[in-house]
Design a protein around this nucleic acid. Structure first.
Length: 510
RNA sequence: GCCCCCAUCGUCUAGUGGCCCAGGACGAAGCCCUCUCAAGGCUUAAACAGGGGUUCGAGUCCCCUUGGGGGCACCA
């Protein structure tokens, strides 16, 4: 082979890679927006932005039976939440509107017949029943289950007459029977298929709507799409699509087929069952759920970006950094297993990177009892402890409760007697009462002196106070927690804890 | 069954014939820091699926095997 794959790709690049890319995310509104779709959309977005081109949302709703109401809205909300702003789309319009395929019927009809005129397609009158019968027969004979070509050689004028008379029909692509077709995928290089393997696929259904094969090729051409990024499930019909584009005499876009996502075990693709299994462990493959679970979009984006895209160096990136660094050549054609613990990692990293005011703003829905200024005081206490935003309440709920209810057993520190514990509380009370307000920096030194004084460890003393003030053994840093809680409530809780222990000893004594 | 695609630590990956006794990240283990939990720092274990070629030299190129994935609709 004189031309290596790399040389070939380099050649393609020279033609297409340096000019502004027009990309499209073209989902069908048949279900929920998931990881796979989001990643495709992300790569589309990245390519468009880094080349100064456009990113388009196109709804492929040509299957009226499978269309699920509301899923287009979920798609749009998902893209917005992720920050993947599109330049053209059904709700924002654009120079190539409409962007919903169900509203472009006439266009497909026109192009289907253009292919018929050119002799590259033909009307087919076979009933679904006959098709089914033929398929079964061929299956029994272990032949390929493709269309048998019954209507392929009908007299064109005769066929046209039958169509005019209103006979139900579809339009099929007249795939060549001889020779081979070579289609070039950017990640895999040339893929050559013998043409007899390519079926006479249906382009226009009997309901007048196109199949994907026609609709996507027509729209990609009409809308000036330069790079088609789609799932690898299209690899098997890839030669067909190339053939269709060539039959029209159009310029081919650059093709990129992305691998599928596998279940976390790496064994098999995600199924509905696996999806609900993920839910049970607090994760999800659906964008809407991830948002509800409190993940930040930056984390989700970073996570999905790196499933199939390898970077050298720092792999923590914002959307802007990804735009700068994205490179189609570094995409991996191999299937990737979903790794939710990595999602946790990226979510935590991006939460920590958010400016205080921004984190406070995002936390607001989760802590409705707090206003923004309070939230900004809370953020430093919990920032590096959050994996998801919805974990915030469990860290700082003690700030919003009238009183806490420590377990007496937890109040008494490790290797400490009840008497020692009471002593800690009594002395801490004395010390803190002398402060007009509890400032973390100011109260730390005296409390540490108390540790010395009582001959206990810091862990023991602060542990007692922690449980008394927050009601639990795990909390944000003690001094800071007291500061935000405020002097009065802190002192009250210490007194309450003391009373609790005294009541206990009375009971025990009696 | 037929066709197509893919193959580096458990997982995501770097690697485009010598820079690799294979680098990073997540996870795991250990240590440090430390008022708990985190965060942070340091360290460790952990991979080129197998077999043939090509080449002075192969994780990198070719072939086979194996394994995984996708597809075989008037769905996308």
């Amino acid at each position: 082979m004189a031309l290596s794959i790399h040389a070939l790709i380099l050649l393609l690049e020279r033609c297409l890679m340096n000019r502004p890319a027009r990309t499209r995310f073209a989902p069908s509104p048949t279900g929920r927006m998931h990881l796979g779709g989001a990643r495709t959309a992300l790569y589309d977005y990245l390519l468009a932005r880094q080349s100064g081109g456009q990113f388009i949302l196109r709804i492929e709703d040509t299957d009226t039976r499978r269309t699920v109401p509301g899923s287009e809205q979920e798609l749009i909300e998902g893209l917005r939440w992720l920050g993947l702003e599109y330049d053209e789309g059904p709700d924002v319009g654009g120079p190539y509107a409409p962007y919903r395929q169900s509203e472009r019927r006439e266009i497909y009809h026109h192009y289907a017949w253009e292919l018929v005129e050119k002799g590259a397609a033909y009307p087919c009158f076979c009933s679904p029943e006959r098709l089914e019968r033929v398929r079964k027969e061929r299956q029994a004979q272990k032949l390929n289950t493709g269309y048998d070509g019954f209507c392929r050689h009908l007299d064109p004028d005769e066929a046209r007459r039958r169509v005019r008379q209103g006979e139900p029909h579809v339009i099929r692509f007249k795939a060549p029977r001889e020779g081979t077709t070579t289609a070039v995928d950017l990640l895999r290089g040339p893929i050559t298929t013998p043409n007899f393997m390519i079926d006479d696929y249906i382009l226009l259904k009997s309901d007048g709507l196109p199949t994907y094969h026609l609709a996507a090729m027509v729209d990609d051409h009409l809308m000036g799409i330069t790079h088609v990024i789609r799932g690898s499930e299209w690899l098997s019909t890839f030669p067909l699509h190339v053939l269709i584009v060539r039959a029209f005499g159009w310029e081919e876009p650059l093709w990129v087929h992305l691998s599928v996502f596998l279940k976390p075990s790496g064994k098999g693709k995600m199924s509905k069952r696996d999806a609900s299994l993920a839910m049970d462990s607090g994760y999800s493959i659906y964008i809407g759920d991830l948002r509800a679970l409190g993940y930040v979009p930056e984390g989700v984006l970073n996570w999905i970006a790196l499933m199939g895209w390898g970077v050298e160096g720092d792999d923590v990136m914002t959307l802007e950094e990804m735009v700068r660094r994205f490179d189609l050549k570094h995409l991996n054609p191999a299937p990737a297993a979903i790794n939710f613990s990595k999602l946790d990692h990226f979510s935590g990293v991006h939460i920590r990177r958010l400016p205080t005011a921004e984190l406070a703003r995002r936390l607001q829905p989760y802590l409705p009892a707090a206003d923004l200024p309070l939230l900004e005081r809370i953020v430093p206490l919990i920032r590096e402890r959050l994996i998801t935003l919805d974990e915030a309440p469990q860290w700082v709920d003690f700030l919003f409760q009238d009183e806490v209810h420590p377990q007496p057993g937890e109040l008494v520190g490790k290797n400490m007697s009840v008497e020692q514990t009471k002593q800690v509380l009594r002395r801490a009370l004395e010390i803190l009462e002398s402060f007009p307000e509890l400032e973390a920096k100011a109260i730390e030194a005296p409390l540490r002196a108390l540790v010395e004084e009582l001959g206990l460890s810091a862990g023991q003393v602060f542990g007692v106070l922690r449980v008394a003030v927050t009601g639990k053994t795990v909390s944000p840093p003690l001094m800071e927690s007291m500061e935000v809680l405020g002097r009065e409530r802190t002192l009250n809780r210490l007194r309450k804890a003391l009373q609790l222990l005294e009541a206990q000893s009375v009971t025990e004594g009696a």
